[in-house]
Design a protein around this nucleic acid. Structure first.
Length: 912
RNA sequence: GGGCGAUUGGCUCAGUGGUUAGAGCACGCGGUUCACAUCCGCGGGGUCACUGGUUCGAAUCCAGUAUCGCCCACCA
């Protein structure tokens, strides 16, 4: 398998083509599965599992999904390369209510509705719809290079999930953590279902508040008294029809005498009591509140406290119903208008004022949510939340970044019971059956219970609950249902609890908290040890991307244009944990350019193979004795990048990973490493063995960078790596190659070569400032620092070429430099380096150059003096020298001494 | 009403106590050197939102203010 030869790369970098070819190779070799035929991790390898949010099956992926996949795939590829049994399980979510909302829209165009099709045909349509969309989604994930184990593809509506849902619910029911009761729920009249508290979006709106006079009842006659009224304030006059009391505050003197009296509710002509309750704020409105227990959360509580009747006055479509008034059948808003008009006619509408308020709207349909009394299934939240909180407080689950722990705490400590039943069709049926006596039988059996658990009536006499589960109930089981739970499968045993759950912070409550709560309760273990929360992708203006705004960009188009690698890099590069990022074409361009740069660097390395190196020469570790100082520096910097990448990965700082790689590969390896190596490879004074060593060293460095970059840009790195000569122990593909070892950096050498680089930059700078011809070779003398003289001497050919400084002479001391009239002077603070550059005599620029050079030196002197003054002030401060760490003080002293030296020399040069 | 986050060069963003605050883009100047013009070289550009505090030392920690954004929230 091992291929020691070098292959040529095509001159131009065409990402789309390269990526298609590589994807094919990966899929064919089955390397994505931790136990596939191409996997390198043995059966005893440490398992590592990433939990990704299964995308909704309703549509195609957007940039947010692409970012999820990029980050998750980065982690999983890294884990795979470190020898772990890395499982990245693909999946899809049936997205119950979201899917129905989409499908309802589609069939509406055909003139159909849910009701007109009927449950059976509607579900058939849904099935057709999701089959089509799932192909699109999975194709997009593949295109992105997500190394998902396709053989384990799961779906929240598959048989395994169905079994998990039934079992989970049965367990909760048996533990009294799921119960059925009549309670006030959030009703969406558009979706015709209840929704959870999370699906109600608080929306500030300007509405109106009306003051309405209710007439007190004369207890003697039993008739309302025309002159005696109490005025209540309401924003929803239509709910008058459901009023069963008027409440005032017990300490409110204005109404004290009225408590216990009765008022007549108009239209329904019902007499209801005036009650005293602490819930009333005497300073708001009139201080008297109408109580509608069946259609308001506060009133419901008040109603329970006072044992009030709770008549419902709205039907499933939020039309008035069952009041026995003329308003029955009217939509709630039409009824409101009619009632207001009628109240006005009766003279009982006291006033109307604009009013700022917060309305609950349906997350899906935007309809105003109506609180209604319904018999529903609930999951008891408090005990589950307590265990979830314990998991994070004890550190068994870590939330990254930590700032989200507060959010987590707050939500879980104020959580209310979760309404899990939905009056929808697309989803898992609630496994509860009722007999004619109303006994409830909950069963996890695929075909339901054999008989009523209470009275023994046969299955045929039982009726299954028509409702389905909230879609998040099945997603909440995802980490373990996908591994085989409730069965004790090999996957479940091996991969659960999983490792890292990664998602956007927007579904921390919907999904993450539910997984933790249900996971701990049902499996006895936290479903993952780390919650990694990413920020959201926004458009270049900082707006959320949405179809209605029309600012959604198709990831596929971006990948076609710039490559999946570029898209991945761009998405990861801009990511700071938990922070949103604006995403625009510039970021993609940066990433595409980087891929192109790497491609060309690789082309250079491959093409630079010494001609006298036999084509079949095995890849060797270059003999240290044959390595030049430039080679050692390249090696040291690659090691430094490795350490930086490792640190960033350990901290989930993925943006840092790409920054370290971008700088390491571009600014160090390409800008200096390759340029240095070119000189060594061309130097005929180097022996063939030395030139070979330099080349093998370049290959080593490139190989290392490719490994480090592979999790971010898998395709281009795989393609280049394939063209490199491999080591004997290497596998056939980079995706399963070993992650580089850390360590090996030579800080002293880095410092000295750093001074060489500074000198080259300074010479280029002086040349440019003096407006000397870019192509001219300049006679130059350098006086390097004494301790770096050897390194300067070894890199002198590089300095000569990169600074176009030839002939180049090194002097031991600055005083040894020969300074002809009109020469450019360089005085660096670092290491006391000085250099003298002789402008070309034929350029005729000598005099001019000297003047410009003087300007540059003046400016440098000014800067140096400023820094020196600051350094001296710091050192003159006794508490600084006494209290600051010794190393810091030493550093400041050295710095001051260097600056002092530089200032003195600059002054001398300038004749001051 | 509560909570969280942001505020750093023209733009987009890094940088969680220590020399001279960085990057990409944009901008100016110069480049047909055999990896790359999707490139190379050089440069200009920032009182790190404001005020106060802690500290020998603050973009960084604390308090407050302002602006923007997000999340949570049953005052009719």
């Amino acid at each position: 398998m091992t291929d020691t030869t070098t292959t040529e790369l095509p001159k131009a970098y065409h990402p789309a083509e390269i990526e298609a070819g590589i994807a094919e190779r990966w899929l064919a070799s089955d390397v994505f599965a931790p136990d596939g035929k191409g996997a390198t991790a043995g059966p005893d390898a440490e398992p590592f599992t990433i939990i990704q949010p299964p995308p909704n099956i309703t549509g195609s992926l957007h940039l947010g999904h692409a970012q999820r996949a990029a980050v998750e795939d980065l982690m999983i590829r890294h884990a795979r390369m470190t020898g772990k049994a890395a499982l990245f399980l693909p999946g899809l979510d049936h997205a119950s209510i979201a899917a129905q909302f989409v499908l309802d829209g589609i069939i509406a165009k055909e003139g159909e509705t849910r009701q007109s099709l009927g449950r059976e045909r509607y579900l058939e349509r849904m099935q057709e719809f999701v089959v089509a969309t799932q192909a699109v989604i999975l194709g997009q994930e593949r295109r992105l290079g997500a190394s998902l184990d396709w053989g384990r593809l799961r779906y929240t509506m598959d048989d395994g999930s169905a079994k998990a849902v039934r079992t989970a619910f049965t367990m909760l029911y048996e533990r009294d953590l799921a119960y059925r009761t009549e309670a006030l729920v959030n009703w969406c009249p558009g979706c015709r279902t209840s929704v959870s508290d999370l699906e109600v979006i608080s929306t500030p709106e300007t509405g109106a508040i009306w003051s309405i006079r209710y007439h007190l009842v004369d207890e003697a006659t039993g008739q309302p008294t025309p002159g005696e009224t109490i005025t209540v304030a309401t924003t929803r006059p239509e709910t008058i029809l459901g009023d069963t009391a008027v409440a005032v505050h017990p300490d409110d003197d204005r109404y004290h005498a009225l408590v216990g009296r009765r008022v007549r509710i108009p239209f329904v002509e019902r007499d209801v009591p005036i009650i005293a309750d602490e819930v009333v704020d005497p300073s708001f409105g009139t201080g008297a509140v109408k109580i509608t227990p069946a259609h308001d959360r506060d009133d419901y509580e008040t109603g329970k406290r006072h044992s009030l009747a709770m008549p419902s006055i709205l039907d499933d479509t939020a039309a008035v119903a069952g009041t026995g008034t003329a308003y029955d059948g009217l939509d709630r808003y039409d009824a409101r208008a009619a009632i207001l008009a009628d109240l006005h006619m009766r003279g009982d509408l006291a006033r109307e004022q604009p009013h700022e308020m917060v309305l609950g709207r349906c997350q899906r349909s935007d309809d105003v949510i109506e609180p209604r009394l319904k018999t529903q299934w609930f999951v008891r939240a408090a005990p589950l939340a307590a265990r979830a909180l314990d998991a994070t407080r004890s550190g068994r689950i870590r939330i990254v970044p930590g700032q989200f722990e507060k959010t987590w705490e707050h939500w879980l400590t104020t959580i209310r019971d979760w309404n899990v039943s939905r009056q929808l069709w697309w989803g898992h049926r609630i496994p509860a059956w009722y007999c004619s006596d109303g006994h409830v039988t909950v069963s996890a059996a695929p075909d339901g219970p054999a008989s009523c658990g209470t009275c023994g009536r046969t299955a045929a006499e039982l009726q299954q609950d028509p409702d389905i589960f909230d879609t998040w109930f099945s997603s909440g089981l995802w980490p373990f249902s996908t591994l085989g739970w409730p069965d004790d499968t090999p996957d479940f045993r091996r991969f659960h609890p999983t490792s890292v759950m990664e998602t956007g912070y927007d579904i921390i409550f919907f999904w993450v908290a539910r997984m933790v709560m249900l996971g701990i309760e049902l499996t006895g273990a936290e479903p993952f040890h780390t919650i990694d929360l990413s920020g959201l992708i926004r458009d270049p203006l900082g707006q959320k991307m949405s179809k209605t705004k029309g600012n959604v960009v198709d990831p596929l188009a971006m990948m076609e244009e710039a490559g999946a690698d570029a898209l991945r890099f761009a998405l990861i590069h801009g990511a700071t944990p938990g922070q949103d990022q604006r995403f625009g074409p510039q970021k993609l361009e940066l990433a595409r350019n980087f891929a192109n740069k790497l491609w060309n660097a690789a082309r250079f390395v491959l093409g630079a193979r010494p001609a006298d190196l036999p084509a079949d020469a095995p890849r060797v570790v270059p003999d240290a004795a044959d390595l030049r100082v430039a080679d050692l520096w390249i090696r040291s910097r690659a090691a430094a990048t490795t350490d930086a990448v490792d640190r960033a990965l350990a901290d989930y700082q993925f943006g840092e990973v790409t920054r370290a790689l971008y700088d390491g590969i571009w600014s160090e390896f390409c800008d200096w490493g390759i340029e240095f190596a070119k000189v060594e490879l061309a130097d005929q004074e180097n022996s063939p063995a030395e030139r070979a060593a330099t080349w093998w060293n370049l290959v080593d460095a490139l190989d290392r960078y490719l490994r480090l970059l592979h999790p971010v840009m898998p395709f281009v790195t795989e393609a280049i790596w394939d063209a490199l000569p491999h080591r004997a122990a290497d596998p056939a593909m980079l995706i399963v190659a070993r992650w580089p070892e850390g360590g090996g950096r030579d800080a002293r050498l880095d410092g000295q070569v750093g001074e060489v680089i500074e000198t080259i930059v300074a010479i280029r700078n002086a040349r440019a400032q003096a407006d000397l011809p870019a192509a001219a070779w300049l006679t130059t003398e350098i006086a390097p620092p004494a301790d770096a003289y050897v390194v300067f001497a070894q890199l002198a050919p590089q300095v000569g070429r990169l600074a176009r400084a030839r002939p180049l002479t090194l002097r031991s001391r600055p005083t040894d430099l020969i300074r002809p009239e009109g020469a450019l002077e360089i005085v660096l603070s670092a290491g006391g380096i000085e250099a003298v550059i002789l402008p070309p005599s034929d350029a005729g620029a000598g005099a001019d150059a000297g003047i410009r050079d003087r300007g540059r030196l003046e400016k440098e002197l000014g800067e140096a003096e400023g820094h020196l003054a600051a350094a001296q002030t710091r050192l003159a401060n006794e508490s600084f020298t006494a209290k600051a760490p010794q190393a810091v003080v030493e550093g400041a002293r050295t710095r001051a001494a260097e600056l002092e030296e530089q200032v003195a020399r600059l002054r001398e040069r300038l004749g001051r």
